Simulated assay, not measured.
Amino acid sequence: MIENILWISVALMLICSIMPKKYNIRKLAGSAGWIFFSIHWFYQPLHYMEIQDYFNVALVITVGIICLIIAYTMIKEYRFPDMTGIGNSMDVTSMATSATALGSLFYFPFAQMDFLNTWLIGTVTENTLWVLHALSYPAEMTAWNKIGMNGYKVEIILACTAIESIALFIGLIASVSAPFKKVAAAFLASVPVIYILNIGRDVFVIIAYAEQWFGPNSFEIAHHTIAKIGSGIALFIIAYIVMKILPELIDLIEGVWLLISEYIHKVLDKVAGNN
């Protein structure tokens, strides 16, 4: 069921992206796409609560709320076409929709198609094992997606491949109208770097867990805390570099932030008024 919702959301966003701008009904298609997309994100906390990953619980709920804010804004833009792009030379919601559609088209096949899922996870597992051996650690592959060392085993899953972050940057970069050289430079500064850094992250988690660097809770501390903080810092730096190469992305991010902050201020004002 949730897989169907994902593909419906992507299809509606693509319709919005490819439909000529003179047809304002594309805003309704985009809005519907974001609503379906929010359903997907609001479904995710169930999984993360099961594995006690509360950081991602908060993250996916936040993403779901952002989806609804963009959907609401696109409905207003459909009703009042003149408000599109006010205060900015570009259509922020349409650009965000295109970026999301393109990123999703790259990500969802890996998430939903078994042969691609298995290939990607297997490749990351092999690359991680190779690095461990290069560092002279006695790790071994105990299954196609599991690495064992010192009696401890770590399973590599899709979330360990950084495919979400890679898809995000691909969508953002591909949605920008810029010279090919700039787009290529932004791609090289993000996608390969993210993949390599993610292999380093997986290596760190396995070593920290197998060597029990942080005691009985070594995996939780290494994976849920240190690795996530490190990944966040790395993605921030990569995003900064990409935006220096493609300053058009700054306008998109600023525009989305203004939409979110404006909505938050309205909600807070209503709450304050009710009190």
Rank of each mutant, 00 (worst) to 15 (best):
A178R: 03
T142H: 05
T123R: 15
T84G: 01
L120V: 03
G87V: 03
A99Q: 09
L135P: 01
E164W: 14
T93L: 09
E155T: 15
F115E: 06
G148E: 07
A178Q: 00
V131Y: 12
S175H: 01
S175C: 03
N145E: 11
I157Q: 13
C160T: 12
P109H: 15
S177T: 06
S89N: 08
V154C: 03
S165W: 08
N127K: 13
K153G: 03
I163Y: 01
G151S: 08
G171N: 10
Y137E: 13
S98C: 11
I156D: 06
I86T: 08
S136K: 13
T84A: 09
K181Q: 13
I170E: 07
G151Y: 02
V154L: 02
A111W: 10
T128K: 08
L132K: 08
M95E: 15
L132M: 10
L105H: 12
G87E: 08
P138Y: 14
F108P: 00
I147F: 00
M113K: 01
S104A: 15
W119H: 10
G103F: 15
F108A: 06
L168M: 15
I156V: 12
T125M: 05
S165R: 07
L172M: 04
A167E: 10
N88H: 06
A139S: 07
N127S: 13
I156G: 03
A111L: 11
I166M: 15
L168I: 15
P138V: 10
F115W: 09
Y107G: 06
N117M: 10
F110K: 05
N88Q: 05
A99N: 11
A143M: 05
I163K: 10
G87C: 02
H133T: 04
N88C: 09
T125N: 06
A139R: 03
N117S: 09
M113H: 02
L168C: 13
Y137H: 14
A111C: 05
A174T: 12
A178N: 05
K182D: 13
A178P: 08
I163D: 08
